[in-house]
Structures are given as C-alpha cells and as structure tokens.
Design a protein around this nucleic acid. Structure first.
Lengths: 354, 354
DNA sequence: TTGAAAGCGCTAACAA
DNA sequence: TTGTTAGCGCTTTCAA
C-alpha cells in the first residue's frame, strides 16, 4: 500500500541505506544513483513515515498545547487566535501541534504527564498561568521543555512571554479618573490566575495615585465568560449605590456586564462606563464598541512557539523573558469618546498587529 | 533517562517480551512475574513510548483537523467550541488531536497530503465543506478515512454530520414574514461554501411560500467576520430603499450588521430586524440579544469525532449521515419579542444542549 | 561509492 | 510459562 524505502531499494537495485542517503542529499552517493533514486521515489509517490523517523530521531517533532477550559461551551475567541499563531509558526518550522482541552485540575495534570512520559510531544506551551501553577511545577521538576504565556508567583526561571497587565490597567485607571469616575467597580478573574493579580494591582495602584481606593464591595470575581460578567455586573448594579464605571478583567465579561447594564435601562458610555481587556475582534463591533486593552495575541502565539522550538533546537534565546505593553484602545463604552459617539468608526484599523 | 521495557527486563531478570506481556495482562504470564513486573515498572516510572507502539501498530492514533482560515485574526468562537468537542471525545477514546490552520487553497491541500502520506494521522475531520471540495475529493481518491461536518454538491458517499440549514432558514423566514417584513436583505457567506447554498435556498424558499421573492439587490456576500457583516450591511442600509430586515449567514456577520445599523441611529429590533446563524455564546449577550438558529456545536464535534474513530476501528456506523435541525432562538434583535424588550432575560438557559 | 549491521522501543508468531 | 526471533521504517556507524 504505502511506499517505503525498501520498495524503492528493490526497484532501483540498491540498498535501503543508499536510497536513504540519496534522498537526504548525502554527498557520498554517485550522481547517477541519486538521480535514479529520486526519480523512482517521486514516481512511486514516496513519503517518509514520520513515525519511523521520529522513533529513530527520538523526537516527536510535535508541540503540545493544553487549553484550560470550564464546561463544554468553551469558546473564547482569544484562544482561536492564539492557536492560529502557534500553529502557523509550528507548521513553518516543521512541527506538529497537538491540542487538548482540559478543565484545570487533576485530569489536566494527567494529560501533561501522559504526553511527557509517552514522549508524544517535545515541549509544551502553557497558557493562562496560575499563581501556584502545578503544570509548571511539574514540567520544571521533570526538566521538560516549555514556554509559558504568563508568569507565576514563584521563581520565573523559565522562558515566557507576558503582557504588562499592571501597566495596562494603570493606563485604564488614568483614563477613567480623567473622565471623573471615582466609584469604580471591578469584575476580577478567578484569583488563582496570575494575570488577575497584575490586573487588580494595576488598577488599584493607578487609582491610588489619585487617592482613590478600590472599594471591596465593588470588587467581584467572574469566570471570564459573558455569563459570568453578566451575573457579577448585575450584583454591582443592584447595589444601593452602584459604581459609575465597571472594569472587567477580560472582554467577554465586559460584554456580559454591558448586557446587564443595558437590561437596566442604562446607556453604556453615558450612564456608565464599562471596559474590558484583550481587544478580541468582537470588541470593535459590540454596541457600544468596547474600550479595552489590546494584546497582539496572534503574534504572542507565534513568538511563544518560536521560543519553544528554538529551545528544543538547543539554541539560546535572545530574550528569555518578554513583557509586552498592552495598548489602551479607547472606544465608546467608557464614554471617553462621547462627542463622536454615533459618528465614530468602530471599524477603525488596529495598527501595530500583523 | 526514560525507562524502557528493556530496563525493566534487566531489573526483573526476565525478557523484554515477558515484561511486555505482563504489562499487557496476557494470561500466559505467571502471577508472580506479573506482579513483580508491574511493581518494578511502577517504581521505575515506566510509560510506554507511544512512538514505538504506533510504529509497531502502524497506526498514528491521531486524528487531524485542519481549520480553514482567512487572515491571522482568526477567532471564530464557533470553532473553539467545535475543537473542544472533538478533542474531548478523541481523548476519551485514546486518540490525539492534531490541529492546523490553513487558508483554503493549495497550502491547505498540501497539509492534507503531508499528513496522509507521512501517516501522521489515521483520519481527518473536514469542516466547512465546499460545493466542490478539493479536500474531500483528495481524501476519497486516496481512500483515506474522514468524516465531514457538512455536505458537498457531488455525491455524498462519505460519513457526515450536517445541519438542516434549509429548514432553519425557512423557520426564520416564517418568523420575519409574521412580523410583517417584506423587504428582506441577506448577507450570504462565500458562495463556494456548501452551507451558503442551503441557507440562501432555505430563506428564499421560505419567503416564496408567501409570494415574496428575494431581491438580488438586497443580497450581498460577506466573509463570515464581523467586519464583513459590517461592510455589507452598510451597503444595504445606504440603499435608497433599505431592507427592513437583514438576515446574516452567521452570528459574527450579524454582529457587524447590528453595528452598522446602530451607527446609523437605528434601533435594532425596532427600526430594523437582524438575525444570525449558529447561536454562539455571544449571541445571548449582544445588544440587543441576537435572534439566531442554534446548532449544538460541541455535540457535533463529539459526534463527528466518534464516527471517525468508529470507522477507524472498522465498526459500521449506525448512521452514516446525520442531519440535525437547528432550533430558532428568538431574541430581541428581530423585534419578535418587543413587548419584553428591556425586561427579557438574555441569560436564559439554552435547553437541548449538553 | 555502496552495503551490512545495529538499533530506536515495542509487539507478535513461534518454539522451547 | 518463558524466551528467541523477526519486524514496523528509518538513520547511522563502520567496513568493504
């Protein structure tokens, strides 16, 4: 059925070894043999068995990506974009991409172990890092190569790319303060996520510079979905004295928050400011368009993948730790552009990417 | 470094074969040996090399999924959910999932060929089928196992799961007609996609029952992104006599269309009806919430994957062809629920799934 | 310039 | 009950 080196060898009357070397362009093969072998190989439609090659090389030529999910309706646009970046880079460099999704916890860790021990992948990309990250701990202990998108609370003596959430949130704080907001609500993300720390800190530091302190009663934790944002925002809005601005830790929750506000008859961007984080493509087209912090997800995916493959190849990285500054994208949901409300163009190009 | 059968064999003073069989629970191994082997294996932290097992079995135990994308900002929530369904099912059945993203065209086809010929995957899941689908043609010709999500224009003599878009659109047509709409715009999807045919046909048939004919000038083609929806809707809305309803072929384009309408000062659901297709989680939380057709994407992913693996195992499928009826989900964007507008709960549970 | 032999880690047919 | 042998498809010494 499938053509192997042996088949070609038989056909051209040479040994398997010679055929192998001819195809690999070794210089100790006579030009005639080489030509003959190549022609016959092409005719027979030969393609090497990657399985065999990999067994021999002791390399899976595959990188693993296990996405942490909650529930089956996992549909974070953030990650489709990330996967695309990782996958394209991997493909360019001749690597395969193995993708799984697991809820955080034991089954997730088990998936890591299986892939490591079964040598299915050569390295991992770890996303959505946690303060104490069992995945990272495991990978470090086992000395298995990985690159993270995000940091942890421990020693970050591994290669990573992260965004400077703290800085981003400070920009946002300034923006909201400038607009006159003093009573600011926050929909945080699960507290075990590392970026939650940075984002909450960033916001509170930004506010404190102006002598404003984050009010505990105005801080809620959402699960990063629209529904979560909706639920938590509803609680904030139903307070006796609700906040005049709600900062959500990601765009999806911000959308949920907008929905909750609108349901209560509020005009987002006028009666209340709502902001997100990530700048997923949707953010430009929500109603009103969402003020948020932009991250070049696709590029981060590419970069993280490149770093990993460089590590695998034994190259030293120019930069082990990369921290990107998110860019504040002002749109109508924060009211910062009230003047141009209706006329403003939500479809404006986002520069910097690509 | 890594423990192999040989290491265990040396340790317990038995042959590699015996160790292998002991671990695989063959019944021709003495209880003592079995116990010993298992204990030592556990102690040494043995995990079989999947590479070696696969080479021996001549099976990659991996299924391939190549997502067609346009441009780097590929972030269709539809597909994250689909991947999750496929991936979880695959994992449950002991298969790996190989994911790539390619723009439709030659490089895409090449990716298929590489994976087939290099025997990297045992089968493929093909999504977003086209009227004339080179991928499917190739896979059929090479006799390579695959299951499609969608049909094609040719002979559909392969296993597939598809939704009955035609039926869905007819439901939608009835709904819009009932609301009094007569001048209905359509933002279709790229015409080479198979589902576009069904959706356009379904809509026009549904309308024709009431003697209404789709006006060519009100039909535009979008690229399935928000931006595309925005652009095409803008053109429709700027006509001398714009439509009173716009039907988009997927949710993302519907969001873009809403954005265009709102920018023109229209209140979606009152001044104009806008509808989508897919019912991605966002649809519930857009402003206004989107009337759309629900597809159980996660379940479809699971099902398609299960069918493929059953095929690979040589089992016969109970059903080779599965066609699901999408469910019309009425929300405010079509104006069908005007009465309850502000009070309506966008967070209502979507039954049927899970 | 070519080929024989060994080995990557595993499974399976067969013999003992 | 156990071990020997062979082989999956490939690469890489090493000898001819």
């Amino acid at each position: 059925m499938t053509v192997t080196l042996k088949d070609i060898a038989r056909e051209v009357g040479r040994s398997v070894t010679t055929v192998s070397r001819a195809l690999d362009d070794y210089d100790d093969v006579s030009p005639e043999t080489r030509a003959l072998v190549r022609r016959v190989a092409a005719e027979m439609g030969y393609t090497p068995s990657s399985l065999a090659q990999r067994l021999q090389k002791q390399q899976a030529e595959t990188i693993g990506l296990i996405l942490p999910t909650f529930g089956p309706r996992f549909s974070d646009p953030f990650f489709s974009e990330f996967i695309t970046g990782v996958g394209n880079q991997a493909a360019d460099l001749g690597y395969d991409l193995l993708v799984s999704t697991r809820p955080p916890g034991e089954s997730e860790l088990q998936a890591y172990r299986q892939n490591v021990q079964g040598r299915r992948v050569d390295g991992f990309i770890v996303v959505r890092t946690r303060r104490e990250d069992a995945r990272i701990q495991y990978l470090r202990e086992s000395g298995f190569p990985f690159v993270a998108f995000g940091r942890t609370e421990g020693e970050n003596d591994f290669p990573y790319v992260d965004e400077d959430s703290q800085h981003g949130m400070q920009l946002l704080a300034e923006h909201l303060l400038e607009l006159g907001h003093r009573r600011i609500g926050l929909i945080a993300a699960p507290t075990d996520l590392m970026f939650t720390q940075y984002r909450v800190q960033g916001l509170s530091q930004g506010l404190e510079r102006a002598g404003i302190y984050l009010d505990d009663r105005l801080v809620r934790v959402g699960d990063l979905t629209q529904r979560g944002g909706y639920t938590q925002a509803s609680l904030l809005l139903d307070l006796a004295v609700p906040p005049t601005a709600i900062v959500a830790c990601n765009d999806l929750m911000a959308f949920g928050a907008m929905s909750a506000a609108q349901e209560r008859g509020l005009e987002v961007g006028r009666d209340i400011a709502i902001t997100g984080f990530d700048d997923i493509p949707m953010a430009e087209y929500s109603h009103p368009p969402l003020t948020t912090l932009h991250q070049p997800v696709y590029q981060i995916g590419e970069k993280v993948c490149l770093m990993l493959i460089q590590r695998l190849a034994g190259e030293t990285l120019e930069e082990e730790h990369i921290i990107l500054r998110p860019r504040l994208v002002l749109r109508q949901s924060s009211g910062g552009k009230r003047a141009g409300w209706v006329a403003a163009q939500p479809r404006k190009e986002v520069p910097g990417d690509r």
